[in-house]
Simulated assay, not measured.
Amino acid sequence: MKKMLMTAVLGMALSMTSAVMAAGNVAAGKGKAAVCAACHGTDGNSLSDAFPKLAGQHEGYIVKQLMEFKSGARQNALMAPMVANLTEQDMADLGAYFASQKTAPGAVSEELLAAGEQIYRGGNKETGVPACMACHGPNGNGIPAADWPKLSGQYSSYIETQLHAFAKGERNNSPNGMMADIASKMSDAEIKAVSAYVFGLK
């Protein structure tokens, strides 16, 4: 547990000492977000769980992901061409716009509620999985200063896909590999349960 705490603190420090980003403009971002609407919805609430909700997500986290899609640090065949010509200001404006929108609420399956809540709030001491809320907050609102994302209301299938990607090493853009380490210790059932649980958080 001490090791996980130290890793978390170090990860936060690294995120907070990253380059200062440009200030985003919500109005400018709204115009630039028109091209994002086909997948993510006009207000960032995508209509398909194949695409993540961006509404209400922290500005810094959105900018970080856009920058990493552009640099190749995060691989995605659909996103790569979308970000290719974005400037840092474009990214900041998009981040500001989507952060200003309200996340559409989700609902958690009753059969997965208890198991998901246990992992999210208490982790699994036997396998070394820490409580998700340590970084993502008790209500899934994340930690903006550390660029740790908001999870509440996010589609469960998207969260599940990302956790599996971290576990398999297909996604590796979390500070110091924190998410890869955590996800690799989770069982498929735990991943499914916690993914369903965060969908219902408000």
Rank of each mutant, 00 (worst) to 15 (best):
K2W: 04
K3Q: 14
T7G: 14
L10A: 15
M12R: 13
A13N: 01
A19D: 07
A22G: 07
N25A: 08
V26S: 05
A33K: 03
A33N: 05
V35T: 15
A37P: 06
T42R: 03
D43L: 08
L47N: 03
F51H: 05
K53I: 05
G56W: 11
H58E: 03
G60F: 11
V63S: 09
L66A: 01
S71A: 11
R74F: 00
P81T: 12
N85P: 05
L86K: 06
D90K: 07
L94C: 06
S109Q: 10
S109D: 14
L113K: 14
I119Y: 06
G122T: 12
N124E: 13
N124M: 07
E126M: 10
G128N: 04
P130N: 05
C132T: 04
G137A: 04
N141L: 12
P144L: 09
Y155E: 07
S156H: 01
Q162K: 02
F166G: 06
A167I: 10
A167N: 06
R171A: 13
G177P: 05
G177V: 06
M179Y: 08
M179V: 04
I191T: 04
K192G: 02
A193R: 04
A193V: 01
V194H: 05
A196E: 07
A196W: 00
F199V: 00
